[in-house]
Write a protein that binds this DNA or RNA. Structure first.
Lengths: 190, 190
DNA sequence: CAGCATACTTACTAGTAAGTAAGTTGTCAA
DNA sequence: TTGACAACTTACTTACTAGTAAGTATGCTG
C-alpha cells in the first residue's frame, strides 16, 4: 500500500522540479497531474491553491537546508571544506537538466509571487546569507579565509556569484558554474 | 501626428519592462494593450506572435549594447572606468522598480522560451561575455587589473556576480548590488 | 478624387489556467 | 456492519491566454 502522504510528497517533488525548470508561472496543475497520472482535482485535494503548494516547496527546502547545516558531518569539517560543501549544493541543483537553484528561481519570479510565498522566499534567502556570513566571519578569524570588507558584503558577493553562475549555465555552458566556483575560492585565499 | 512606429516602439518598451519585472511567462498581450489603451489585436498587428515580440526586445537590446560599446566616450576611458561603466548598466536596470537585467530574465525563462528567442538570448549573453573578456584581458596586460586564471573565467565570474546580485536585490535589499560591485572591483585590484 | 496602405477596432476562437461541488472507492476502527 | 474518514474522480466554472478574420477610419499618392 502506498504510505500516507506518498502522493503529496510526489506532488511537492514534481512541483519543485517544474519550478526550478520553468519558473512559477511556467508550470500548471495539469503538468503535475498528467505526470503523476491523476486528475487535476487530486492536486487541489492536497494543495487547495497553488500558493499553498509553493509555500510547501519553500518550507521543505528551508528544513532541508537547516538539516544540512546541522548534520554531524558538518561539525568535523574545516572552513574551506564547508565552503566546498556549500558550493556543492549549487552543483547538485544543476545535476537535473535545466534546473537552477531555488533561490534564483524565487527571486526571479518574486514580483509575481503571492505574498505568502514572497515572505517564505525572503526567509529562504536570509537563511543562506546568514549561514554564509557566519562561515566567512569565523573562517577569517581562524585564519582560513582572507578578504577585505565585512563578512556580510562578502557573503552577498559569494551567493550572488553562485546564483548568477547557476543561471548563466542555461544560455551558455555547464562548466561556467565550476569556473565561478574556482574564482570564488581564489578570491577567499590568503 | 504620431510618428511612424511610435506605437510599435511603445509596445517594445512596455513589453521589455514587463519582461524584466514579471518574466516571459508573467505578462500577456492584455497587459500591454490595456496599458497603451489599445485592443489586443493592435499588438498582434505589430507583432503577430509573442515570439516575434520577444525576439524584437532582445535584438534591440543587443543593438543598444553594441552602440554603447562603440560610443566615442568609451574610447577615451581607462580600463577601470570601462568596468565601472559596465557595472553601471546593471545599476541602471534596477532604477526601475522590480527590474532585473535582461540577461538574467532570459536565462531564467530559457527553458520555456521559443527557439528563436533562445538563440537570440544566447547571442545576447555571448556579446556581454566577449566584451568583458576582452576588457579583462587587455586590462591585465596593461597592468590595470590583476587576477589569476583566464580572462574568460574571470569574465564569467564577474558577469555571474552582477547578474546574481541584481536578482538577489528583489528578495533582500537594493544596496546588495553595490556591495557586489565593490567586491568585484576589489577582486580585480593589483 | 480613386485607390491603396497603415494602423487600428470589433468580435470571435480554441486552448489552458486555477479552482470547486458533489459523488465514489477503499480502509480501518468501534 | 456500520460509519467515518482519506484519497481520490467526474464534471463542471470562470477567467485568461495567444491568435485570427473581417471590417473601418485616416491619410498619402498618382
Amino acid at each position: 500500500m502506498t504510505p500516507i502522504n506518498d502522493t503529496k510528497n510526489q506532488i511537492i517533488d514534481l512541483a519543485e522540479s517544474l519550478l526550478l525548470q520553468r519558473g512559477y508561472n511556467g508550470f500548471s496543475y495539469t503538468h503535475i497531474s498528467s505526470a503523476l497520472n491523476v486528475k487535476n482535482a487530486a492536486i487541489h485535494y492536497h494543495f487547495p491553491t497553488k500558493t499553498e503548494l509553493g509555500v510547501a516547496i519553500i518550507q521543505r527546502a528551508r528544513q532541508q537546508f537547516e538539516k544540512w547545516t546541522l548534520h554531524p558531518r558538518m561539525g568535523s569539517m574545516g572552513f574551506a571544506k564547508k565552503l566546498d560543501a556549500f558550493c556543492g549544493i549549487f552543483r547538485d541543483f544543476l545535476k537535473f537538466e535545466g534546473h537552477v537553484c531555488l533561490g534564483s528561481a524565487l527571486e526571479h519570479d518574486f514580483n509575481t509571487l503571492p505574498e505568502k510565498m514572497q515572505e517564505e522566499a525572503k526567509a529562504f534567502i536570509a537563511d543562506f546569507l546568514i549561514w554564509l556570513e557566519k562561515l566567512l566571519k569565523e573562517g577569517r578569524e581562524a585564519g582560513s579565509f582572507s578578504f577585505s570588507g565585512t563578512p556580510k558584503e562578502q557573503a552577498v558577493f559569494v551567493l550572488a556569484a553562485l546564483q548568477g553562475a547557476s543561471l548563466m549555465v542555461r544560455a551558455t555552458d555547464t562548466i561556467y558554474l565550476d569556473m565561478a566556483i574556482r574564482r570564488i575560492k581564489q578570491s577567499l585565499k590568503k
